Simulated scan of single mutants.
Amino acid sequence: MTDLPIFAVLPDLLAALRTGSNAVLVAPPGAGKTTAVAPALLGEAWCTGEVLLLSPRRLAARAAAERMAALAGESAGGTYGYATRMDSKRSAATRVTVVTEGIFVARIQADPELTGVSAVLFDEVHERSLDGDFGLALALDAQGALRPDLRLVAMSATLDGGRFSRLLGAAEQGAPVIESEGRSYPLALRYLGRSGDGRIEDAMASAIRQALREAEGGVLAFLPGVAEIERTAERLEGLPETIRVHHLHGSMEPAAQRAAIRPEPDGARKLVLATGIAETSLTLDGIRIVVDSGLARRPRYDRAAGMTRLVTERASQAAVT
């Protein structure tokens, strides 16, 4: 665990928070920021209360809490807990609570002073959501008017560090920006293409079978939604018993989500059919191959209907990468 790239810059982050209230942390995927920063704060003299770690997704919130608890030799609900819609594990002993952005907004509106909270960490802040932006605005307001001792940290893999530095810093100077080099591995990219009049499930099933034949290791396949995952799984029936097929999306039971994330206990090969929920804040063990449909389902505001609806559209090359 201590060989993660984030540990090289943690001393700089801790030093910045000893002398100031806010900081910006830029750390690429795999650096370890989600599970390493909050535990490091607990030993600081100023951190006498709770640390809130904001996660954009329920699955990622629960996984982060369980991972930190496991590293500490505990179960979730002890020193490390989580609180999401319809699911929570925390106790009087909890020092770090991973919460979704909506839960944080509700909490700070009910208690603008954030009583008993020493720090708020905004993970994956670049994803930009209404609850995320609103929560950050409320936290800055609380810090300026009620809690000058409250520490705020904006964390992301692809963050505009200068912009958030100015947002979190004083008028004359921005908040310090700490950057981790991260740890990435070389990728061999292959574009297969597909017929415009064919179904995406057929193309994905064919690509996944090809990947399983031509390469070793686990496979993570990205599809735009739950319906596409289920239809692709139907087309993959008959795979060898040594390949375990998992679904991964937000509406699944927690036990099934955990099974998709953790390594196979008997060393079997893993195939995970996932929505974009697996793009950030999660690390899936044993994955060597990624098959991406090139499609994503995103919320778009319909001006005619006056409401937001989900739209399936082509994913950008940057998002796929």
Rank of each mutant, 00 (worst) to 15 (best):
A304K: 12
G294D: 00
Q257M: 03
Q257V: 05
L273K: 03
L273D: 01
I287N: 02
E234Y: 13
R314Q: 11
R262E: 15
R303E: 14
G286Y: 11
Q317K: 14
R309M: 06
G218C: 02
A221K: 11
L271G: 05
L220G: 01
A315Q: 00
G225T: 09
M307P: 07
E234H: 14
Q257P: 09
S281D: 08
L248Y: 04
R231F: 09
A318I: 03
V226N: 09
T275C: 06
A221Y: 12
L295G: 02
R303C: 05
A318R: 15
H249Y: 15
E228K: 07
V291Y: 07
R231G: 08
A227N: 13
T283P: 01
G306N: 03
L248K: 07
R269M: 04
K270Y: 03
E228F: 05
T308F: 09
R300C: 12
L282C: 06
A319V: 04
L284T: 02
E241S: 11
E230G: 04
R303F: 14
L236S: 09
D292K: 03
P265R: 08
A315Y: 02
L220I: 00
V226F: 06
L295D: 01
A221R: 06
D285M: 07
A319G: 06
G218K: 08
V291I: 04
E253H: 13
H247C: 05
D302G: 11
E228D: 13
L271A: 11
G276Q: 14
V272P: 01
T312I: 13
T280S: 15
A274C: 04
H247Q: 13
A233N: 13
L239P: 10
A259P: 00
R235I: 09
I287H: 01
V291C: 06
V272E: 04
I277Q: 06
V311C: 05
R298L: 13
S293V: 01
L236R: 11
R262I: 11
R235M: 12
R235Q: 14
E279G: 12
G238R: 10
P265C: 06
D266E: 15
M307D: 15
E253A: 12
A221P: 10
D285V: 12
H247P: 02
A305G: 05
R300F: 12
R298N: 07
R288I: 02
D266P: 07
A315S: 10
I287Q: 00
A233P: 09
E237H: 09
G238E: 07
P224E: 05
